[in-house]
Simulated assay, not measured.
Amino acid sequence: MGVMLRKQKKIGPITLHFTQNGFSSWSVKIGRWSWNSRAKAHRFDLPGPLHWKQDKS
């Protein structure tokens, strides 16, 4: 397995994700809530190392 190049560009609450093949996905994070365009799932950060995730279905 080779080395993978990943990069993120943050513009306010929106983060753009890039790989070596180009644009990959985008996400938005407001406070403890976030959403990712690839996973199409909502996520809420809980205290400590915990989080709650609602899948797209």
Rank of each mutant, 00 (worst) to 15 (best):
1 M>A: 13
1 M>L: 09
2 G>V: 07
2 G>A: 09
2 G>N: 08
3 V>P: 02
3 V>T: 15
4 M>C: 07
5 L>E: 15
6 R>D: 14
6 R>A: 11
6 R>E: 12
6 R>M: 09
7 K>M: 13
7 K>I: 08
8 Q>K: 15
8 Q>M: 11
8 Q>C: 12
8 Q>Y: 13
9 K>P: 00
9 K>C: 09
10 K>L: 10
11 I>Y: 11
11 I>L: 12
12 G>H: 08
12 G>T: 13
13 P>Q: 09
13 P>C: 07
14 I>N: 12
15 T>S: 11
16 L>T: 13
16 L>A: 15
17 H>T: 12
18 F>R: 11
18 F>I: 09
18 F>P: 03
18 F>Q: 09
18 F>L: 11
19 T>M: 03
19 T>E: 08
21 N>I: 02
21 N>D: 12
21 N>H: 06
22 G>P: 02
22 G>S: 08
23 F>C: 08
23 F>N: 08
23 F>E: 09
24 S>G: 04
24 S>Q: 10
25 S>D: 08
26 W>P: 02
26 W>M: 13
27 S>Q: 12
28 V>Q: 09
28 V>T: 15
29 K>E: 13
29 K>T: 15
29 K>I: 05
29 K>P: 02
30 I>M: 11
30 I>W: 05
30 I>T: 15
31 G>V: 08
32 R>W: 01
33 W>R: 12
33 W>Q: 14
33 W>C: 12
34 S>Q: 09
34 S>C: 03
34 S>F: 00
35 W>R: 01
35 W>L: 05
35 W>C: 03
36 N>T: 07
36 N>I: 02
37 S>K: 04
37 S>G: 09
38 R>S: 10
38 R>C: 02
38 R>P: 00
39 A>R: 06
39 A>E: 09
40 K>E: 10
42 H>P: 00
42 H>F: 12
43 R>W: 00
43 R>A: 07
44 F>A: 10
45 D>P: 01
45 D>S: 11
45 D>L: 05
46 L>Q: 04
47 P>N: 09
48 G>W: 01
49 P>L: 03
49 P>T: 08
49 P>Y: 01
50 L>G: 02
50 L>T: 06
50 L>E: 03
50 L>S: 08
50 L>Q: 05
51 H>A: 10
52 W>C: 04
52 W>S: 03
52 W>T: 01
52 W>P: 00
53 K>G: 00
54 Q>P: 00
56 K>R: 04
57 S>C: 01
57 S>Q: 05
57 S>I: 00
